[in-house]
C-alpha cells in the first residue's frame, strides 16, 4: 500500500521540478506564469460547472432525508428542528451548520471492544478539529492572497491579515523584518495551521491502519500538493527573498489582462513559479477529484431536504406505472375460499 503515497509524492515532486527547470533552464516563464494559470483557471471554472450541472441533471426521485432527531408529529412533542427539519428554513439552517461547522463530523465516535467484551464508543473530536483547522486556515490563506489581485487592497483583506498576524512570536518577527517588504510585519498563523493540519490529515492516513487501508493515491496526492503549495509559500514569505513587487505586477497583470513585459517575468524567483504551478495543478485537478466534495455537500439528498414527505408529496419526475397485482386478480384467485370464510367479495362466484 506504500505505493499509494510514494506515487503521489513523486508526482508532486516531478511537477515541482517541471516548473523549476521550465523556468530556470528552458526560459518558459511565459508558459508557467501566464498561459498555464489562465488555462487552469478556465479549466477549473468550467470543470466545476460541468460537474455541478452533471449532478443537478440527475433528479432527486425520493426524499431520503437522514433524520438525526425527533420528527415533527404531535404538537406537544418537541421537534428537533435542526436535525430533523420539516421546513425549508430549518433545512437551510441544518445545511449551514453542516457546511460551516461540519456538524456530522462533530458526532464522530471511535468504537472499541474491551478485553472484558464490552463494546465502547468514545467521542473522537480530532478529525473534526483537524478538518476545521484545515478548511478555515486554507480559506484565510486564499482570502489573504486576494491582495495580489486587488489594488488598492480592500479593507476586509487588510483586516483579515491584521487578525491573522496578531499572534506575534519574537524570533519570527526578526526573520520577517529582513525578508518581507509588504509593510505588514508579523507571522501569519493561518499558514502554520494549514501546514500543521495537512500534516495531521496525512499522518492519520498513514498511521491508522484502517484509514491507510481505504486510502487511494487520490487521497495522498492533494495532500502532497498542498504541502508543496504551503511549503513554498511559507518559504517565500519567511526564508527566501522574493521580489514581492514584481510578483504583484504579474498577478495584477493576470487579473486585469495586462501582462507585464518579459523582464518582469524573467526576474521572478523559481520558488514562486513552483508555488504558482502547483496551485495551477490543484485548480486543474479539482473538478475531477474528490475535492469536489466542496460542491457535493450542497447537493447531498440526505441532508438538503426537509423530512416532510408525509405532509407534502414529493414528486419523482420519472415515476412510471408498474405491473401490480390488482385486487380483482387477487379475488379471482381466492374468491371461493373468501366466500367460504365469510369474507366480503366484489363478485359472487
Amino acid at each position: 500500500m506504500n505505493g499509494n503515497y510514494i506515487f503521489s509524492l513523486i508526482t508532486v515532486v516531478v511537477l515541482g521540478l517541471l516548473a523549476f527547470f521550465g523556468t530556470t533552464v528552458f526560459g518558459l516563464q511565459y508558459l508557467f506564469g501566464v498561459i498555464v494559470p489562465y488555462a487552469c483557471v478556465i479549466w477549473f471554472v468550467f470543470g466545476i460547472l460541468k460537474r455541478m450541472l452533471g449532478w443537478a441533471n440527475s433528479p432527486v426521485p425520493f426524499r431520503i432525508t437522514t433524520t438525526c432527531g425527533q420528527q415533527k408529529s404531535l404538537p406537544w412533542i418537541k421537534q428537533n428542528r435542526i436535525d430533523n427539519p420539516s421546513t425549508g428554513i430549518e433545512t437551510i439552517i441544518r445545511m449551514i451548520l453542516e457546511i460551516v461547522l461540519f456538524r456530522s463530523l462533530f458526532r464522530n465516535t471511535k468504537s472499541d471492544i474491551t478485553a472484558s467484551g464490552k463494546v465502547t464508543y468514545i467521542w473522537e473530536k480530532w478529525l473534526w478539529v483537524g478538518a476545521l483547522a484545515f478548511h478555515y486556515s486554507f480559506l484565510v490563506v486564499i482570502v489573504r492572497h486576494m491582495r495580489f489581485f486587488t489594488d488598492p487592497v480592500p479593507y476586509l483583506i487588510s483586516m483579515l491579515e491584521y487578525f491573522d498576524s496578531l499572534f506575534k512570536i519574537e524570533f519570527v518577527g526578526e526573520v520577517v523584518g529582513t525578508s518581507l517588504q509588504i509593510g505588514l510585519p508579523g507571522f501569519f498563523i493561518s499558514g502554520l495551521v494549514l501546514l500543521a493540519a495537512i500534516l495531521f490529515l496525512f499522518s492519520r492516513r498513514v498511521l491508522i491502519s484502517q484509514v491507510r487501508y481505504i486510502s487511494l493515491p487520490a487521497d495522498f496526492f492533494p495532500l502532497f500538493l498542498l504541502m508543496g503549495i504551503a511549503g513554498t509559500g511559507i518559504f517565500m514569505r519567511y526564508f527566501s527573498k522574493v521580489d514581492i513587487i514584481s510578483i504583484k505586477e504579474l498577478t495584477m497583470g493576470l487579473a486585469t489582462f495586462c501582462i507585464p513585459d518579459g523582464a518582469v517575468l524573467a526576474g521572478l524567483s523559481s520558488v514562486f513559479y513552483i508555488h504558482l504551478f502547483l496551485v495551477c495543478i490543484l485548480l486543474a485537478y479539482f473538478p475531477f477529484s474528490k475535492l469536489m466534495h466542496m460542491g457535493g455537500v450542497f447537493l447531498s439528498p440526505t441532508r438538503n431536504l426537509p423530512n416532510n414527505s408525509r405532509a407534502r408529496r414529493h414528486i419523482n419526475p420519472w415515476n412510471y406505472p408498474v405491473k401490480v397485482h390488482t385486487y380483482d386478480e387477487y379475488e379471482d384467485e381466492f374468491r371461493e375460499k373468501m366466500i367460504e370464510a365469510g369474507l366480503p367479495v366484489e363478485k359472487e362466484s
Binding site: R51, G54, W55, A56, N57, S58, P59, V60, P61, I64, S104, L105, N108, T109, K110, S111, L127, A131, R204, I208, Q210, V211, I214, S215, L216, D219, K290, M292, H293, G296, V297, L299, S300, P301, T302, W318
Partner: peptide, 22 residues
C-alpha cells in the same frame, strides 16, 4: 441518470474514515 444521490455519493467521498466503525 435517475438518482442524484448515487451520482453525488459516487463522487464526493474523501475516504476520511468517519463511517468505518459506525
Amino acid at each position: 441518470d435517475k438518482y442524484r444521490s448515487l451520482k453525488v455519493f459516487m463522487d464526493t467521498c474523501v475516504r476520511c474514515g468517519a463511517c468505518a466503525d459506525k
